[in-house]
């Protein structure tokens, strides 16, 4: 007798059920139920935002090197659980080849961003030669709490490709999984959980996108919303983002690797640091 897995959500480093007590069934191609997953509520979104905000300071102040190590650890854990992801993907309708490709892409994506963690700052920041006695520099800082709606047509890569660049740059994330293919999202939460990622940095919810995404877009303590073409939902989401001028990144088609996905979730901060001017010594001393 096979022991079936209970698919729960992931908030603040714990695996609760949705506070609403609701669920929805996931069925395979033959129509039989393969899992009951949480139909998360707006309240779950709010709880997840609180958890994400609470750890934002700690996560963003970790060294870039350390964040890179943790992302690499996530790749290791994902590699170790490859078979489970392959099985879940095929259960949800992927071909074996497609499943293998998707898992490999996801691992590669994590390794890719692991490498960027302590490098993107060097590429995207600047020292600015101002015409006054100041050392003026512009450096990147994470935006804060990012709402992410996973690309909906895939179960794993559509989630990983948005989470990795967000947390690589020191942000924390509240993620709505693919509504139709949510299984890998929950299993990926277990990967996150076992990879030294502090609880609350990544929070993953399953449920209706039409319920979760507007809640994220309207939340006043979410700094940015990342989505991939949700059709008719795009415009209302864009409108809801305006109330706190949330950065609204609605990608048409996002690829799993790219520096721009990190920098899009960073703010540029410019500092004018004084340079002492005493005496007449010139550089020819």
């Amino acid at each position: 007798m096979e022991i079936l897995k209970t698919y729960k959500i992931y908030i603040g480093g714990a695996f609760p059920r949705t506070e609403s007590g609701r669920y929805y069934p996931i069925v395979d191609a033959s129509g039989s139920t393969i899992a009951n997953v949480c139909l998360s509520s707006r309240k779950d979104v709010r709880n997840a935002v609180v958890a994400a905000r609470k750890v934002f300071g700690g996560w963003s102040e970790k060294t870039a090197f350390n964040r890179g190590q943790i992302l690499y650890r996530m790749a290791e854990m994902l590699e170790g659980r490859k078979l489970q992801f392959l099985e879940e993907l095929t259960k949800q309708g992927s071909s074996k080849e497609a499943a293998a490709l998707e898992v490999q892409e996801s691992i590669d994506c994590l390794v890719y961003y692991a490498g960027w963690a302590d490098k993107f700052q060097q590429i995207a920041s600047s020292v600015n030669p101002v015409s006054s006695s100041h050392f003026n520099f512009s450096a990147l800082e994470p935006m804060g709490v990012i709402g992410i709606v996973a690309a909906q047509e895939t179960s794993l890569i559509g989630l990983v490709k948005f989470i990795a660049p967000a947390i690589c740059g020191g942000n924390t994330a509240v993620v709505a999984a693919s509504e139709a293919f949510p299984l890998c999202a929950v299993t990926f939460a277990e990967v996150v959980h076992s990879s030294d990622v502090p609880g609350g940095v990544v929070n993953i919810l399953t449920g209706k996108v039409s319920e979760l995404a507007p809640a994220m877009a309207a939340h006043m303590d979410v700094n940015a919303l990342v989505t991939e073409s949700l059709g008719e939902l795009d415009k209302p989401l864009a409108l809801a983002c305006v109330d706190n001028l949330k950065r609204n990144l609605a990608y048409q088609h996002a690829v799993p690797q790219g520096l721009q996905y990190i920098t899009a979730l960073q703010e540029v901060k410019t500092t004018w640091h004084p340079i002492e001017q005493i005496g007449g010594a010139s550089s020819s001393y």
Partner: peptide, 13 residues
Amino acid sequence: WANTYNKFDPVSP
């Protein structure tokens, strides 16, 4: 701005 305020420069974002 450190020890200054309202400084602007074309090179400074």
